[in-house]
Simulated scan of single mutants.
Amino acid sequence: MHDDRLRRHEAATAPEDLGRMFVERANAGDVAGLVALYEADAVLALPTGQATGTQQIRQAYEHLLADKPTFTPGEQQPALVNGDLALTSTRLTDGAVTVEVARRQPDGTWLWAVDQPNILG
């Protein structure tokens, strides 16, 4: 789950950190940094299906960032935490909402296990 990729990037010490880190890394064009926000076997919803695991998530973000889009931070909602799981969500400026499941890692940091980046939009 947790590997050396995070040694190059700030680690999320709270589940709510992941949303902020996503925007920072996406705007920097940091594909490796985005992939480092996910567990190795995480699932990312895509408009055409889903990406599962590090390689597919990396490919999805390489494609997404190819045109150098700009991401605007949304309104981070308080995480709903139950033990080592947390439901995270951000209301975006266009009215869409993100919904993710984060899991506490053995070292106490958080990574996303499931990511539905855009619903209700």
Rank of each mutant, 00 (worst) to 15 (best):
L85Y: 01
V101G: 00
L34D: 09
Y61M: 13
A42Y: 03
D4N: 11
E10Y: 04
E62T: 05
P15H: 05
L46H: 07
R103P: 03
A86Y: 00
T72Q: 10
H2K: 15
N82K: 01
T70M: 11
P117S: 04
D4E: 15
E16M: 11
N118R: 14
L87C: 03
W110C: 06
F71M: 12
D107C: 09
A113I: 08
T72N: 06
V81F: 00
A79H: 00
A12L: 08
G121D: 13
V31I: 09
M21P: 08
G49P: 06
Q76I: 12
A45Q: 14
Q116W: 08
N118Y: 12
Q56V: 11
N82Y: 01
A28I: 01
V97E: 13
G108E: 12
T52H: 11
N118V: 14
V114W: 06
V99C: 02
D115K: 03
Q56W: 05
A14Q: 13
I119W: 10
P117R: 02
E16W: 06
D84H: 08
R91E: 14
G53T: 05
T13P: 09
T13V: 15
E100H: 07
Q55R: 15
G95S: 07
M21Y: 10
L65G: 02
L111W: 03
A86L: 01
A113H: 05
G121L: 10
L80F: 01
D107T: 06
Q105D: 04
R25I: 03
E24C: 11
D67V: 12
G108K: 03
A42C: 07
D4G: 12
T98W: 03
A28T: 00
E62A: 05
G19Q: 14
T72P: 02
R7V: 13
P73W: 00
Q55N: 15
R25K: 01
P47W: 07
A42S: 05
A40C: 09
R103N: 04
P15E: 12
R91Q: 12
T90Y: 00
R20W: 10
T93V: 11
V114Q: 11
T70V: 12
V35A: 00
H9W: 12
G83Q: 02
A32M: 14
Y61L: 11
G19S: 15
P106S: 04
T109V: 07
R8M: 15
L34G: 04
G74P: 00
D4I: 11
Q50A: 15
A45V: 15
Q77G: 00
Y38S: 13
E75C: 04
F71Q: 07
W110F: 03
T48G: 09
L92N: 06
A14R: 10
D107M: 10
E39R: 10
A42D: 07
V97G: 02
E100T: 04
H9S: 11
G53V: 08
G95Q: 07
L65F: 02
L18C: 09
T88W: 01
A12V: 08
P69S: 06
D84T: 12
R20M: 14
V35G: 00
Q50N: 14
D3Q: 12
E100V: 02
L80C: 00
D41S: 12
P78I: 08
A45W: 10
A60C: 07
R91G: 03
A102N: 04
S89P: 00
L85T: 03
A14G: 08
L18N: 06
L111S: 09
F71E: 12
A14H: 09
R103D: 08
V99L: 09
P78A: 10
R104W: 01
Q55H: 14
A86T: 00
G53R: 04
G29F: 05
